[in-house]
């Protein structure tokens, strides 16, 4: 099935293309693509370096998309497994993070769509979320402060969750991953103006939903 995944397809390289040649092409691109080319050539240390650099951002992105830490980590496993599995065909045609987040957002959006009929929004609210519990513990709050904070956080999470999936992905990438419109467009495979429109509509909804939290 994974062989059919369009996310993993690259232009087929000529057998004569070697890493050195690709290195020249990618020189101006970025360090990550260079590391991925080394992974393609069998350098395991480069895979570890990529994992160390991107593990956190990918999991945090997925967590805010699916709002469940265990599911986010499971999906992130799949992301890195796909990166590893497709290394032999890797071509630095796009920024590495664009490709990485395209895989991640594809998996997240699929998960959200698949689980829509399985769980109600309320059951998500009531689910055990270790992320939320940890935040309270880390902030050293009193019980009362923690309760207020939990309530605010629940509203923020709900406001994000009820956004249409693509708007949600765009907001998470824009706000938390600090991606440019152009990169979000590449990840979501749409135009830059479509991204701006998605974000504008999403923030407009959030402004209304979170308006009472001002002050």
């Amino acid at each position: 099935m994974e062989d059919q995944d369009p996310l993993l397809k690259f232009p087929q390289p000529s057998p004569s293309i070697r890493v050195q040649k690709d290195m020249i092409a990618v020189a101006a691109l970025e360090r990550d693509a260079e590391l991925m080319l080394r992974v393609r050539d069998g350098d395991t240390e480069s895979f570890t370096l990529l994992l160390n650099k991107h593990r956190g951002p990918v999991i945090h992105f997925l967590y805010r998309m699916v709002q469940n830490q265990a599911v986010a980590e499971e999906l992130a496993q799949e992301v890195f497994l796909r990166v590893y599995k497709s290394r032999a065909n890797y071509e630095p045609s796009a920024k590495f993070t664009t490709w990485l987040f395209r895989i991640a957002s594809h998996l997240a959006l699929n998960h959200i769509r698949d689980s829509k009929n399985e769980r109600t929004q309320d059951s998500i609210d009531e689910s055990d979320d270790d992320g939320r519990t940890l935040q309270v513990a880390d902030r050293g709050m009193t019980t009362e402060q923690a309760m207020v904070y939990q309530a605010r956080l629940a509203e923020i999470r709900r406001a994000i969750r009820v956004l249409p999936e693509k708007q949600r992905a765009a907001v998470v990438m824009h706000k938390y991953q600090e991606m440019e419109y152009s990169q979000i467009a590449l990840v979501l495979e749409c135009s830059e103006s479509a991204v701006k429109s998605l974000l504008f509509r999403a923030y407009e909804t959030l402004r209304v939903r979170l308006a009472h939290m001002a002050g």
């Binding site: 593990r55 992320g131 605010r152 956080l153 923020i156 923030y203 308006a211």
Partner: peptide, 24 residues
């Protein structure tokens, strides 16, 4: 928009599980 931005800042992500790499 500034209010939304500030509210979203409150939502931190949780730390990654220690055994993530081992599982991978």
């Amino acid at each position: 928009q500034a209010m939304v931005w500030k509210a979203l800042d409150e939502w931190d992500a949780a730390p990654v599980s220690m055994d993530f790499d081992a599982k991978l």
